[in-house]
Write a protein that binds this DNA or RNA. Structure first.
Lengths: 331, 331
DNA sequence: CTGTTAGCGCGTTCAT
DNA sequence: ATGAACGCGCTAACAG
């Protein structure tokens, strides 16, 4: 069913039908005709051809979203948020995950041919490479949880605050020898988390001890190795930069026959289903990842409309989710 | 840059340019003009406007994919596979996740307005409701890991075989009192897994004992509760229908101070990152979920081209991933 | 308040 | 082997 069918059934011109169906210039159409057109449209189960509309208006009403991996709760919930906002604004979401070793850029492929009006980008890549690639697409873009030098718009989580909340919680339980499983050195979020850890320690009058920090990266094995290297320092609590590193640490603690949390407390950043699957269930700091996707999309809509947009501040954590992996310090 | 720009630069008509750029009727264009057009296109960095092309050909070259949840490795890897195949066939992927309580159907929203040429559907909903909803979209569709009565095309994993492989492994380790944490009764996959469990027992001459089966559903709490109810039966091994139920069971075993696998072995179906995060790392049967997404998309491409397609057989498991949660029976 | 008209960029006859 | 012309379905000037 197309516009002309609706128009014929209602006995009007297709331009009139177009106007009322778009809900534009409400005042300039007689209420009676308006009702007739709406009724015809409903009767015929009319839906505008989005391709024709897009061709005419030069706006596809779809955004592309690029994520490095799908099986990561941070990205998957961000996508859910993005989809929510997109739907609210009448946009669809084209998805792509970054394949390593692609000859042409994902961004190029997605943005070419007027398929998308904008791009949501969550990349783990080197930022230096990213900027020119994205600029080449000629569509506005918003970065998810990454900072990018230049005028790029970003929506980021306040990882620093999250680390502080985690340390505060541990300190409130009496811990003072708190180890940190850090992320990739030089990474934006890893740096923020380390900074938050240090800031919180300082605030509580605890001296920073570099021997209590080990790089764990983003795998369970990395977390395990880091934890093993930290054991001789006898920390009473551990802050994992991610859930995987915290989980890896817990394996080592179990192997060492240490009781969690009786002998040592564990806390991780970000909350996800897997936190409830660990033994004991992991205390975490929940982050508004879905809201991040939502806000990024709102921002992109504004950019697409050439509105003036203000930078959005880092999103504060949703708060502590206390489970069984943290408890009072022994002694 | 549009077709007319390329044509002008090459000094030919736009129809000629269109022909060579689509790579159609190779024989009927002089090699020299052909080269000129290709060169011009490259020089201008030309990409066809997909909206115009779609309008003209009445095919958007995009598929919609609907999943109930994104933060589930089964679906997220299926999406990755689907994207792979889609890209290979020149298609894009529009994503939607099922929101509960939506007024209009996701399928309708996605399929309306010629936005997609077909639908990939992974639904947890009642199958009875699903069929008419999907038929109303008037686009071909393929179901992911679900059977649907009627002529619908489905790509499913062989869950029954997976359960058999798991039981075979446990039996080979000497286990005979094998408990099963089952899925939702009546569910397609839950039924298959239970059937595989029973078939394998029978094959090994082990009598089926209904007291060793408990419904765990699809949460860690459910798995924990089921395991707790099973403990009095003193199983030496447990087969979880999913990773979450296996994880829930492991929590209960830890609380009961049982050693895994010394006192009791645990195995789960499906493999994912989380299996490596548990303590001890979980032995699983790996399933080809990515391949499932790929095949489903291949099938959809064929359907879109009105090709005759044959039903695809259930996808056999990728095999056993032996980790530390299974071991020889005590004794 | 409503109808007429002219494209958006492309693919596709039909001519030549 | 190539060009001219039409229309996919819709929106947006401009008329009236």
């Amino acid at each position: 069913m197309k516009l002309i069918d609706v128009a014929q059934l209602a006995g009007v011109d297709i331009s009139t039908a177009s106007r009322v169906l778009r809900g534009e210039s409400m005042q300039r159409i007689r209420e009676e005709t308006r009702g007739r057109i709406l009724a015809s449209a409903r009767q015929l189960n009319y839906a505008p051809n989005e391709l024709a509309r897009g061709l005419r208006t030069a706006r596809s009403k779809t955004f592309g979203i690029v994520v490095p991996q799908l099986d990561n709760p941070v990205f998957s919930t961000a996508i859910e948020g993005a989809e929510l906002s997109a739907r609210r604004h009448g946009y669809s979401l084209l998805i792509a995950h970054r394949q390593s070793g692609a000859t042409d850029s994902v961004y190029r492929r997605l943005a070419h041919g007027n398929r998308v009006d904008g791009l949501l980008v969550a990349s783990l890549d080197d930022q230096a490479l990213l900027k020119p690639e994205l600029d080449a697409t000629n569509v506005p873009f918003v970065l998810l949880n990454r900072k990018l030098a230049g005028a790029a718009h970003c929506v980021v989580l306040d990882s620093r605050a999250a680390a502080e909340i985690a340390v505060d919680h541990l300190v409130s339980l009496g811990h003072r020898r708190i180890a940190h499983l850090a992320g990739r050195p030089g990474g934006f979020n890893a740096g923020e988390r380390l900074a938050g850890y240090r800031a919180a320690l300082r605030r509580h009058g605890i001296r920073f001890d570099a021997r209590l920090v080990a790089v764990a990266g983003y795998t369970a094995e990395g977390g395990a190795a880091a934890m093993r290297s930290l054991l001789p320092q006898r920390p009473t609590a551990v802050l994992g930069a991610t859930l995987v590193s915290a989980a890896g640490a817990m394996m080592v603690l179990h192997e060492a026959r240490l009781q969690i949390p009786a002998d040592i407390s564990v806390i991780g950043l970000h909350d996800a289903l897997v936190a409830t699957m660990l033994y004991p269930p992991l205390t975490t700091v929940r982050m508004p990842t879905e809201r991040m996707g939502e806000l990024a999309t709102d921002l992109l809509v504004a950019l697409t409309g050439h509105q003036r947009v203000k930078a959005v501040a880092p999103l504060p954590p949703d708060g502590l989710v206390i489970r069984a992996s943290t408890g009072p310090v022994a002694g």
